[in-house]
Design a protein around this nucleic acid. Structure first.
Lengths: 175, 175
DNA sequence: ATAGATTGCGCAATAT
DNA sequence: TATATTGCGCAATCTA
């Protein structure tokens, strides 16, 4: 489940900083060449107020901590970013793969569907033929009536061979 | 069609710069609050060599132009970014929607499939019943043989009623 | 050549 | 705490 962001609009500060390829220990997959167009923009040390609420006696409860902007220089920061970037790539790959699989599934199902429809058509035809045969036979029976036992009522001959031919319109179009 | 990137690895310089909310004429959708953590990083004017190949007589063919780093301050730049951001959002929304639709399609097809299979089962059963009826009837015929016209060859009676009962094992398992 | 559409990527906030 | 997801902006391409 995607899990939507509670209710508060996702409002991360739209910041982002030069990513020098300096200690680029990453790129295990396709090493991005990073030719030379990189502008040598340097980072600002980014001094952070040691603690936004140190004046009051509240002792700053751990909750509501504003999360220091993370020193971009910190090695640990870089490592975290690095790992996250990896995770992101992985996640996206999976996502893409899944989408692809789903599409494929659609194609497979479509094919299967066609096969099934064809089969239905065939079966229907067979049924139809058999039913016709039945009808024809019923007619024959009605034509040359010949009671198995001794001669009896001597059917009135000709027409009116309307036996229980229920038409069998059993189309069973269940839907 | 997505059109894959020729062959050259996509190696944009992994650069990116502080996005100050200064002239934030944007945010038409959900206004990003941008609390206070924004560092006031200023941009370097980024002087660009007027033209990398002005010495030769080649007159610099339009192709191969290195594309100036685009002054981040330029109003036009901001507008372009703004528009692109919008386009990106749109594109991603569509993409997501499509994926969702595809998933839905899968579900629909699965259902349809089940319906078809059920129908096949039904038809098969019907066919089976009719065929059985046929067989039974054939037996009856064989039992009390009674040539329609005058008495003739007088069939040898009993057994061997092996008419063209081809069993009709026409399962048509076409696959 | 220009504008919109896609795509890969990194960041940060969240979710798990 | 670590990884997984997700929204977002940037820049390079692709398309029209």
């Amino acid at each position: 489940m995607p899990s939507q962001p509670k209710l508060t609009a996702s409002d991360h500060n739209g910041v982002s900083v030069i990513q020098s390829q300096a200690h680029a220990t990453s790129a295990p997959t396709a090493s991005s060449s990073l030719p030379s167009a990189v502008t040598g923009l340097q980072q600002v040390p980014q001094l952070v107020p040691v603690n936004p609420a140190s004046g009051g006696g509240k002792a700053v409860p751990p909750s509501k901590m504003k999360k220091q902007p993370a020193d971009k220089d910190s090695e640990e920061y870089r490592q975290r970013r690095e790992r996250n970037n990896l995770a992101v790539k992985k996640s996206r790959m999976r996502s893409k793969q899944k989408a692809q699989d789903t599409q494929q599934r659609v194609n497979e199902l479509k094919e299967e569907n066609e096969r099934l429809e064809a089969k239905i058509k065939l079966l229907s035809k067979e049924l139809s033929v058999l039913k016709d045969l039945f009808l024809e036979h019923a007619h024959n029976l009605a034509d040359n009536v010949q009671p198995p036992g001794g001669a009896e009522g001597s059917s009135p001959a000709s027409s009116n061979n309307n036996n229980n031919n229920n038409n069998n319109n059993n189309n069973s179009n269940g839907q």
